[in-house]
């Protein structure tokens, strides 16, 4: 199944979250993330956390896995935290060398890092419940209106489709070339940085050559199958909005409204 597409972090499932139209998921994720940036106090964050827990449970996803998706971005979160902590205004709490730490800075730092964490968590929720193919499809539909101002929506989507198709193939090929070069005495593991870089070159050059040859052959094969751009093209699976999409939109708009209320009137 789709799980064997080696990148992306899609976890196949049959839950209401998985079944939402990809367009709905993309737009709602953007709304939720925007709403996150208005959140500035304890209540707002509790509400967001509750919403996050609700969607995760509904999508039968593992919390641990979701939290793990934050891991690669730790450095950015830490830097954000410290920048805000050290650049805060107001009363100094304590000093560290030339840096002074203020109460306002500390709060700001925590808020900003929390926002980043939520940003990652909510986008992971989307990518974990939407297959890359659906995402591509959704993006193409969403970008379609912008074709008028010259945005190549179909071409972008086709590029993503082909990338999805060929990444596993190119990975297999990389492995093959690596073995072939190792058999001829290349060493990819030891040696200094320059040596390693030079050895990687013996991997990259054949890989690129083959990728170009593949691209050429694929283009011919696509033309032979009547491909002539996005003009007049139909799709086998047309995306269709369902009642659940409306319901999801209602919930998210309500959430955003409450968050806005907390921010400006609370």
């Amino acid at each position: 199944m789709l799980g064997n597409i080696t990148f992306g972090q899609y976890f196949p499932g049959d839950t209401p979250v998985h079944k939402l139209d990809p367009r709905t998921k993309i737009i709602l994720t953007i709304i939720v993330i925007a709403a996150t940036f208005t959140a500035a106090d304890f209540w707002a964050y509790s509400l967001l956390t509750a919403f996050f827990v609700f969607v995760t449970a509904l999508g039968r996803l593992s919390f641990v896995r979701l939290l793990r998706s934050v891991k690669p971005l730790w450095p950015i979160i830490l830097i954000t935290f410290f920048v805000h902590v050290f650049s805060g205004q107001g009363e100094t709490l304590f000093r560290l060398f030339i840096f002074k730490i203020t109460g306002a800075g500390l709060t700001q730092g925590i808020l900003m890092s929390l926002r980043l964490v939520f940003l990652i968590l909510f986008s992971s929720l989307m990518t974990m419940t939407t297959s890359p193919l659906e995402l591509t499809d959704g993006l193409e539909r969403l970008l379609r209106p912008f074709r008028r101002i010259g945005l190549p929506a179909h071409e972008l989507a086709m590029m993503m489709t082909i990338a999805l198709r060929f990444i596993p193939t190119l990975l297999q090929e990389t492995e093959r070339i690596m073995m072939a070069q190792s058999a001829r005495g290349a060493d990819f593991k030891s040696g200094g940085l320059t040596r390693k870089a030079r050895n990687i070159l013996t991997l990259i050059v054949p890989l690129f050559l083959s990728a170009f040859r593949r691209a050429d052959e694929l283009a011919t094969a696509m033309e032979a199958r009547c491909y002539h751009g996005g003009e007049g093209r139909t799709r086998m699976h047309e995306l269709a909005l369902a009642k659940s999409d409306a319901l999801a939109a209602l919930i998210v708009v309500f959430l955003a409204a409450v968050l806005a209320f907390i921010k400006w009137c609370g």
């Binding site: 593949r214 694929l218 799709r235 086998m236």
Partner: peptide
């Protein structure tokens, strides 16, 4: 390998008919 366009078998088979604008 170099003539299959889509990441799913059925999507690939659908590629030709999609190109000539056949109804879904």
């Amino acid at each position: 390998d170099n003539q299959i366009v889509a990441a799913l078998v059925e999507e690939d088979v659908a590629f030709g008919p999609e190109n000539i604008g056949m109804p879904p």
